[in-house]
Amino acid sequence: MDHANRTWTQSFILAGFTITATLQPLAFLGALCIYLLTLAGNLFIIVLVQADSGLSTPMYFFISILSFLELWYVSTTVPTLLHTLLHGRSPISSAACFFQLYVFHSLGMTECYLLGVMALDRYLAICHPLHYHALMSGQVQLWLAGATWVAGFSAAVVPASLTATLPFCFKDMAHYFCDLAPLMRLSCVDTGWHTHVHGTVIGVATGCNFVLILGLYGGILKAVLKLPSAASRAKALSTCSSHMTVVALFYGSAFTVYVSSPGSRPEGTDKVIALVYAFLTPFLNPIIYTLRNKEVKEAMKRVTDRIRNILKGL
């Protein structure tokens, strides 16, 4: 392709999902319901942690930060998903596309770091219980939470800015939001070098955190096996089960997309995998952290009783 055609494109076309006209309204309503439930579930956790003093612990502080992050994470991509489900192929300006790319990856890498911090919290609670509250003071919690956001938004600058400077010859993107692999497929030039840089940056961010999480859980398992009774071992592991489930969901799908080469997957498969980590995981997180958590259920009962007593007094 000649140099004249290797220019900045003013917009892209999000292809979305190929759905028959009959199923289109149902798919839109289903996605909208899941989105609203995701917002409600994560807001519920944030409000519950703030409302109940029994959840004023470092673990629930980080869970509420995760829920806050998920609100923004899911809201970065779902509006374009809903638009493509309702209207089919949808245009998006290049500026909006690259902004979405940056914010999505910033929040995604922030979640990677936050999951590592949450594993550290569980490690300190189980392996160093006598020093836990001193090591995980309120100031340390705020510093760790802030550091995850700074690290995530800093790390995403490299892949987003490199992709934004590529010349694009094509507009049709086989996805429902702007992501790295679908965008690079539209470029006029060989993106092999960009793929290696993206893989290195994202691989280091996600891979190092994943190794950290595995190492911390190795220490947790070693400490748990030394506990005297089966009941104490089960109790210690129960505080980690929800986090381990979220880690498996998030990292399993994210590694599939970002660690392998874009050329090794059929075009269009990225959007199907993305539904798991960008849409379903934020929806499942509140369910995982409430249905399998005795302390959250007890807090819900306390808050409900408090509201009932207030209403009776009116």
Score class of each variant (00 low, 15 high):
163 T>D: 05
163 T>M: 05
164 A>I: 01
164 A>D: 01
165 T>H: 15
165 T>M: 10
165 T>G: 11
166 L>I: 06
166 L>P: 07
166 L>H: 13
167 P>S: 14
167 P>A: 15
168 F>A: 10
168 F>G: 03
169 C>F: 13
169 C>Y: 14
170 F>M: 14
170 F>A: 15
171 K>P: 10
171 K>M: 14
172 D>K: 10
173 M>D: 07
173 M>Y: 08
173 M>V: 12
173 M>S: 14
174 A>H: 09
174 A>K: 07
174 A>D: 13
174 A>C: 01
175 H>T: 00
175 H>Y: 13
175 H>V: 02
175 H>A: 13
176 Y>T: 09
176 Y>Q: 04
176 Y>H: 10
177 F>A: 08
178 C>A: 15
178 C>L: 00
178 C>R: 03
178 C>P: 02
178 C>I: 03
179 D>F: 14
180 L>I: 15
180 L>D: 08
180 L>N: 12
180 L>M: 14
180 L>W: 12
180 L>Q: 10
181 A>N: 10
181 A>G: 07
181 A>P: 08
182 P>Q: 12
182 P>H: 10
182 P>I: 13
182 P>C: 11
182 P>G: 12
183 L>R: 06
183 L>H: 04
183 L>I: 04
183 L>Q: 05
183 L>P: 04
183 L>A: 13
184 M>Y: 04
184 M>S: 12
184 M>A: 10
184 M>F: 11
185 R>L: 12
185 R>C: 05
185 R>I: 04
186 L>K: 09
186 L>N: 02
187 S>V: 03
187 S>H: 04
187 S>W: 00
187 S>L: 01
187 S>P: 00
188 C>F: 02
188 C>T: 00
188 C>I: 00
189 V>A: 06
189 V>P: 03
189 V>I: 09
190 D>F: 08
190 D>H: 03
191 T>A: 06
192 G>K: 13
192 G>A: 08
193 W>P: 03
193 W>E: 14
193 W>K: 07
194 H>F: 01
194 H>P: 00
195 T>S: 08
195 T>E: 14
196 H>K: 02
196 H>M: 07
197 V>F: 04
197 V>D: 11
197 V>Q: 01
197 V>R: 03
198 H>P: 00
198 H>T: 05
198 H>Q: 06
199 G>L: 06
199 G>I: 11
200 T>V: 11
200 T>P: 01
200 T>N: 01
200 T>S: 01
200 T>A: 08
201 V>C: 09
201 V>F: 13
201 V>P: 05
202 I>E: 04
202 I>D: 04
202 I>R: 05
203 G>A: 11
203 G>Y: 07
203 G>I: 08
203 G>N: 06
204 V>Q: 05
204 V>E: 05
205 A>K: 06
205 A>E: 03
205 A>I: 11
207 G>R: 09
207 G>E: 00
207 G>Q: 10
208 C>Q: 11
208 C>H: 14
209 N>G: 15
209 N>T: 03
210 F>L: 05
210 F>P: 00
211 V>E: 07
211 V>K: 00
212 L>P: 06
213 I>F: 13
213 I>V: 13
214 L>M: 02
214 L>A: 02
216 L>D: 06
216 L>R: 02
217 Y>V: 01
217 Y>Q: 03
217 Y>N: 12
218 G>V: 14
218 G>T: 11
218 G>A: 11
218 G>P: 02
219 G>K: 14
